[in-house]
Write a protein that binds this DNA or RNA. Sequence first.
DNA 1: CAGAATCCCTATTGATACTG
DNA 2: CAGTATCAATAGGGATTCTG
Lengths: 122, 122
Amino acid sequence: MGKNELFGLCPYVTSQKVLTGKWSLYIMHLLSQQPSIRFNELKRKMPEEMTHTTLSRQLKTLEKEGLISRREYSQIPPRVEYSLSDIGKRFKVVLDALGEWGKEYIEYMNDRDSGLSDEFKA
Amino acid sequence: MGKNELFGLCPYVTSQKVLTGKWSLYIMHLLSQQPSIRFNELKRKMPEEMTHTTLSRQLKTLEKEGLISRREYSQIPPRVEYSLSDIGKRFKVVLDALGEWGKEYIEYMNDRDSGLSDEFKA
DNA sequence: CAGAATCCCTATTGATACTG
DNA sequence: CAGTATCAATAGGGATTCTG
């Protein structure tokens, strides 16, 4: 991605880049629900479609972007905990707004669609 | 995508799907700035990297998702105006939160990076 | 002016297997 | 447990060309 391209752009374009990936918002939401969480614990809370490979990659991306922190305990078996960084915590405002809007959107679209005949549902 | 997959999921996953694309947030922001806007007018306000093909596709997607409305005037040359739908207007709350956070994020990351030695900037 | 159709290319995902 | 490496499949973006 290149940091110099990333910063200095407008907030919306920057935010959009940061929020790439299929799962970043949901991960951020789960992380905002508790102080820290282990890898497999997080994995279990994610939709089943998501593989651990993908989760691992996504977490690495979020970490590089500065949204989350990764803490590794020197133990066997390994223990790694993820949590929101400072700027990640401030993202909570966005998450809340997004969660509210998302619910409204789902209702809205379901209502809209149930009023349509089948031919328009394609 | 399939609507039945889309609706009924959690707000965060749904929102994430809706916000795909490289430019959706910025488009939504521009549309929220005025009641309606024509295709080429919008195109001119977008970053130059974005081609009209891409803008066209993105607008079609947003329309299908119900976030924006497209109004076509029967004229020659053609005149088409885009505006936010009802649920699109309600997205303004998210945009505002996102805009605020995005600014903070940009500052935050710039500060962080300027404090690092080069070897950590890779 | 506002697109649609096409092709190409890259970025992301997912599946699988392996590791300290 | 918490990853990494690799590869195949896919989706998405961009460039170009054509149109009413």
